[in-house]
Design a binder for these strands. Structure first.
Lengths: 217, 217
DNA sequence: GTTTGTGAAGGATTTCACAGCA
DNA sequence: TGCTGTGAAATCCTTCACAAAC
């Protein structure tokens, strides 16, 4: 028998505002924190207090995906976290390629935060001949010409770019041509990509630069 | 004589939407790219094409801060970049403290991207006694108890947090108590801070997690 | 002719406020 | 009673469209 709660209404991706999708990982995070603290049920009020947002926004955000709470009680922390992970596709494992094996690339390759969240870097590339063939952790650095082959045979949808700014757009173009659909860009540039490809920048300098506006008195 | 262009209308910070402030560093970036390419004048149309946004949005964003363009011509790349840098406070130098000198902290300490943009890490801290006193680049690792003193004597408004998730909220509380007003948080948590303190997270995992929503077919 | 700067219109997101359920 | 889920209202943000400037 299929109950209200069990039913997985297929989510119409286009109906969900992007800002809402951006906040989902945040909810997953904070639910994890509450779970670690042994809290099993939580209200939108409490979540809002922790995240410094209004309870209404949290409830509205969640309502795009289903009905996860119980009136008079709140949300089951573990269940809500699991549902959100599933909605985000975090119950799958995602293979990624890493391009650029300089200082930054090696730091990213050895970052221990990806694996426990289901992201695995399965191949590494560099344009520098001298690096090709070297072993970095469990990865052997490949030459860029092997990229399309690797992406398609290993079903890779994610590319991570850690090359110098001057090469980043070219590398991103290569990733796109190879069929990658999501790019995590560490290079300090504003890249151009086709509309069906997503880019997220990881850029500590830009993050600082937007805060200084509020710091100058 | 004070012309229209020279006049620095004092910007009412509260009047500027936050989204606009977030985009300013992006404009600075892309203007830099155009400058490097030897381009001296640029239209909102061209800027919009590069950034994949509408020309109207760029013009509207800039209009919050002044009138920087010339009708029929466009914007002087160098001048606009300089004006935006000044608006963001990027013509000042900003001192920052770094807390957490483990693997990630050392990588951040040696990241060469901060200095050329006016951000300088002037002090480093770690709770681990065994690290205190060690030299990391030009920084001597200090014990956390010296944080308030260092923040106030060296006029530090920015804190960079690279401690493990479990300690991050405590460290952020310490930074806030010491008087830091902007925090760059590398820890995978959603921290709470008072409303007069800004936080920006640098979180590659969350960036990936919001893209997978669109990847699952 | 070209492109800016900007009110006004349109669209998107957030918040309100309350019916409905546990 | 307490809290969710959600239409409707309010607010915020983007885009339009055009007068003014070069």
């Amino acid at each position: 028998m299929v109950t209200q709660e069990d039913r997985h209404e297929p989510i119409d991706v286009a109906m969900v505002p992007e800002v809402v999708v951006q906040r989902l990982p945040l909810y997953v995070r904070v639910l994890g924190q509450f779970a670690s603290a042994g809290i099993e049920v939580i209200s939108s009020e409490q979540l809002g207090a922790q995240l410094q947002m209004t309870p209404a926004q949290i409830r509205k955000d969640l309502s795009y995906f289903g009905r996860f709470g119980k009136q008079g009680r709140g949300y089951d922390v573990g269940n809500l976290a699991a549902r959100l992970r599933s909605i985000l596709g975090l119950d799958e494992r995602w293979n990624a390629v890493l391009i650029g094996m300089g200082r930054l690339g090696r730091a990213v390759a050895s970052y221990p935060g990806f694996e426990p969240e289901g992201f695995r870097i399965v191949a590494a590339f560099d344009a520098d001949e001298r690096l090709v063939g070297h072993q970095v952790g469990s990865l052997r650095v490949q030459q860029l010409s092997e990229l399309p082959e690797t992406v398609s045979t290993r079903d890779i949808k994610i590319g991570i770019v850690t090359v110098p700014a001057a090469y980043a757009q070219d590398v991103i173009n290569e990733l796109v041509r190879s069929g990658v659909k999501a790019i995590l860009n560490y290079a300090p540039i504003a890249p151009s990509v086709p509309p069906d490809v997503r880019v997220q920048g990881v850029d500590p300098v830009m993050a600082l630069q937007s805060m200084t506006f509020y710091l100058k008195d």
